[in-house]
Design a protein around this nucleic acid. Structure first.
Lengths: 109, 109
DNA sequence: ATATTAGTAAACCGTATGGTTAACTATAAT
DNA sequence: ATTATAGTTAACCATACGGTTTACTAATAT
């Protein structure tokens, strides 16, 4: 019954952390190295590296070692898939924003 | 720097589990009770209840007790917010699907 | 009144998550 | 050759997650 989609699991799990979302935001403004990505965060470098590992395993970040530093870039494809999954519900949330349904929702309380 | 958004955390975390996504799918087809939702899943009722608790705390499901059973319904608003967050990257993934960028991505390997 | 059904609560378990510090490797700069 | 920089690895810790079983309450049906 459950339609296993590990990739979607990994994508949503990766997005569930504010540090990781901030890293993706930073990467949207261009490629970065690990320490550039770490700088704004009040946590150790290894902690940031773990977040990068999660993002990489989710396929949201690709890395290439260049000399002693490491260039990270955003890979947006999994985001497209996540958005496609959520969009299945668009008709639903649009419906739920009309006043009749707001009334029905209130009746839950 | 990190823009804390606990609601988004909770939404994405809730979506990161296949059982919970299946429950939302079931609820898209209409309201259900706890045991109706549990039936297709090969796990105990308390396990399903925990998933429902996660969905409820994320604001994705509302419940109303009716007699001895409990009616669950989908609340789509958090999905709209999640989709809005992801959509920030749409320009990015559309850009990344043209062939030049596919070439650049390959150069990561 | 009793038995069944629907749901809840509590205790427990193994594993994952999100962080730390300390020690290390590899490259670059002086 | 030495030092500094960029990143990595390992060990550890507390808490959360996803499941279990067992025992319970509350409502309904007979």
């Amino acid at each position: 019954m459950v339609n296993y989609n590990r990739r979607l699991d990994a994508t949503f799990a990766a997005l569930a952390d504010p540090t990781r979302r901030a890293i993706l935001m930073a990467l949207m403004r261009g490629q970065s190295t690990v320490s550039e990505l770490a700088r704004p965060h009040r946590m150790s470098l290894p902690a940031v590296m773990k977040h990068l590992g999660v993002l990489q395993r989710a396929g949201l970040v690709s890395q290439k070692k260049i000399g002693r530093s490491r260039r990270c870039r955003l890979v947006a494809r999994p985001l497209k898939n996540a958005e496609a999954w959520i969009s299945q519900y668009r008709a639903f949330w649009e419906k739920q924003f009309d006043s009749l349904d707001r009334y029905l929702t209130e009746s839950d309380k």
